[in-house]
Each structure stands twice: as C-alpha cells, then as structure tokens.
Amino acid sequence: MTAHPIDSLRNTLSFSFQPRGRADRGEAWTYLLAATLCATLLSGMVSALTTGALADCLSLGIVVTCAIPAPALAARRFHDFNRSGWWSLALAPGALRLLLLEILQRGFGWSAREVAEDVLRWIDWAIFPTFGLAYLALLAWPGSSGANRFVASSAGRGHDRPAPR
C-alpha cells in the first residue's frame, strides 16, 4: 500500500539524517518532486527580490538545503531492494560534480563553470552512466516485498523496527 504523498514527504524529512529502514518508490518520487518544486520556487523568489552575490548565495543555499535528505533517502531506498545502503555512494560522484559546478557558477560566473565543464567532460563518461543508472533504479524499480534484512516489520515498510544486527 502506497502512503499519501504528504505522509511520504513527512517521512522523508523526519528521517533526513537516518539511513536505517526502508523507503518505497512513492517516497522517493514525492521527495524528488517536492524538492525540485521548492528549490525552483524559492530560488525564483530570491532572484526576483535580490540581485548579485546575495541572490547567488541564497539560491545555492536553498538548493543545498533541499538536497539534505537525499543521501539518507537513497540508502533507505537501496534497503528497500534488500541491498546495502552503501550502494548509494554510486550517486556521490555525480551529485558532487553538480554541486561543485553550481558553486563555481555562483561564485565565479559562467566562464569558470565552462572551463570546469570542459575539463570534466572527459571523465563524465565514467561518472554519469553509474549515476544515471543508480538514480533510475531508485525511482523505477519496486522494492522487495515483505520483511528483509534491513526492516523486520511484518509489513516490510517503515522505520519502526530496523532488523537486528
């Protein structure tokens, strides 16, 4: 049974720093849509109300803040596949690349970002297939049914009873 989108988002935010337990596809999609919408709207408001370096810093802060739950959610999503949350580290190079390019753009302008992208395009072929496939798996594949080694509850969902170690 899929949780209501508000309950899924509340669950994601409640467990922002807790990689234990499981997260279903609905929780991952709800977070993705809510974080994208929130970052877009808030960054747009900041751009409309302020300019220059302040707007850039505030917009970057909004994006980073919206991304805080992502690592723990990714680990819980891998747990839903009955896989170790350490597999979520496959997402780290792609996410760090995007973050560093945003920092370069906000701090030093588009020209600095373009230089970095010219250098990084030679290693993108190694980073983004892994990043893209892992990200698609998190969003598309259904989790394992029933209890697994990460959650011992009979429903197999939630954070109430992590599996004993």
Rank of each mutant, 00 (worst) to 15 (best):
M1A: 12
T2S: 13
P5S: 09
S8Q: 15
L9H: 04
S14P: 01
S14C: 11
S14D: 14
Q18S: 13
G26K: 08
E27W: 01
A28S: 10
W29C: 04
T30W: 01
L32G: 10
L32C: 11
L33I: 15
A34W: 06
A34K: 03
T36W: 10
C38I: 14
L41Q: 07
L42G: 04
S43N: 08
V46F: 07
S47W: 11
L49H: 09
L49N: 09
A55L: 08
A55T: 07
D56W: 02
L58G: 02
P69L: 05
A70N: 05
R76K: 09
F78W: 15
H79Y: 06
N82H: 09
R83I: 12
G85Y: 05
A90E: 00
A92I: 08
P93H: 04
L98E: 12
L99F: 14
E102P: 00
L104A: 15
Q105V: 07
R106I: 04
G109Q: 06
G109F: 03
W110P: 10
A112S: 12
A116W: 02
W122E: 06
D124I: 01
G132D: 06
L133K: 05
S144H: 08
S153D: 13
S154E: 15
R161S: 13
R161D: 14
P162G: 01
P164H: 05
R165C: 06
R165T: 10
